[in-house]
Design a protein around this nucleic acid. Sequence first.
DNA 1: TCTTATTTGTTCGTATGTATT
DNA 2: GAATACATACGAACAAATAAG
Lengths: 250, 250
Amino acid sequence: MPVEKPRSEYRQVVALLRAAIADGEFPPGALLPAEPVLAERFGVTRATVNRALAMLRTEGLVRPERGRGTTVNELPIIRRESAGRQAQGVREAEGSRGAFDAEIRGLGLVPEAVVSVAEVAAPAEVALLLGVEAGEPVLARVREMSADGVPVQLATSYLPLGIVGGTRIAEVDTGPGGTYSRLGELGYAPVEFTETVRVRTPAEDEVVALRMDEDQRVFAITRVAVAEGGRVVEVNRIVAPAHQWELVFS
Amino acid sequence: MPVEKPRSEYRQVVALLRAAIADGEFPPGALLPAEPVLAERFGVTRATVNRALAMLRTEGLVRPERGRGTTVNELPIIRRESAGRQAQGVREAEGSRGAFDAEIRGLGLVPEAVVSVAEVAAPAEVALLLGVEAGEPVLARVREMSADGVPVQLATSYLPLGIVGGTRIAEVDTGPGGTYSRLGELGYAPVEFTETVRVRTPAEDEVVALRMDEDQRVFAITRVAVAEGGRVVEVNRIVAPAHQWELVFS
DNA sequence: TCTTATTTGTTCGTATGTATT
DNA sequence: GAATACATACGAACAAATAAG
């Protein structure tokens, strides 16, 4: 007979709760029983239940709130299609203001993006990629994106001031087609994109901006856009909760 | 003056330990002081230190072992280049037996792969992609890959028996260039690849095979290879510890 | 091989703090 | 203000794995 791997109680509670949620006993949006109640149900201490719930919170499956209770998250997973994302047709699609808008609308949610533009000192890693001195001023376009009011993605795009300084790219509204269309008009149309994907814990500011927990995980995507001739014209750093996204590459 | 966000003690300990590791006080491979020692150093209970170390373990930064102590992980981050990964030149490079081998060797580590082949009932999701009935037998090529003896990736490749049954693809050694070269000779050379990336907790068997903890995270990559004419010729499911890999797409 | 000390894993009971209702 | 509910911390105890003799 198969050997049963002995599992600690809190892991068993995790499995039981996960199963109960999957079975529909606690549907998305529902409030779970309070910790003392679950503790009695499973025959463990509240501390053990608390630990199990903390694990599920880290996975993004539930959201415990002090004084209120623990609710089951309704997480529509957002699919990010990387192929054709920068195609002009997609960028300029009617009603949509870019690939992100289209992705969120496709799920029946309301997208929103707050954009701010500033000149900042280039972070070391970005400077290296852009081919400028570390600390040298570059243009930073920061976008905070949300779906139905829930923040789901942060993106900071760094561009060399030598190319985009004084152009419409340095303004909040870059016009139809966005940054890439303007870059094309300046003779720096991106022809190649490289995206590097990592998973890590969020930084403190990301915890605040994305309203997530410190022990959850984020995708950290660095996209480098290269123009004809090999000149790097943009470095885009994207941060998004890992449990809410699915990345597709072709 | 700025408002200091009050942080729980265990999060402060996490930050302090992370800093100490980054500063080189505890270099890769080093044994950390025992939990009671750290508890005294930070002025907290062992339970708090234990919790902090559990977080660092989940991140893949340290590896606590009962009876032994807690060591700082030393396996470097492995970069997986997706572009050109299936190019014949890369696959057939001298000394390397594929993209994975080259990636691991590039880090100065010794790659190893254990391959097994079997006919299995197609999982529902795979069957849908391959265009066969769920449960219908398909060829499964399972590869367990490791670097310096540490398992770092599982890959299960599903192929339609109608195409590959009885060919060399159904054997453990597929010959120079591997599966894709053989598929080409059969008239089903893959011309398009789509990879879908998700992050999730590992399944029980993955925990065992990859020697990781239940509360760590894995990349779950599904690669679909399409031949000329739109026929799906392979579905490859790849699972790898998320903290050990960096994915690059072009 | 057996024993013992060390070290981490887990659970318990209790207490206190903080946010919400 | 009071009740409810989750967050964190402490101290203690025992289990399990490892290492040393």
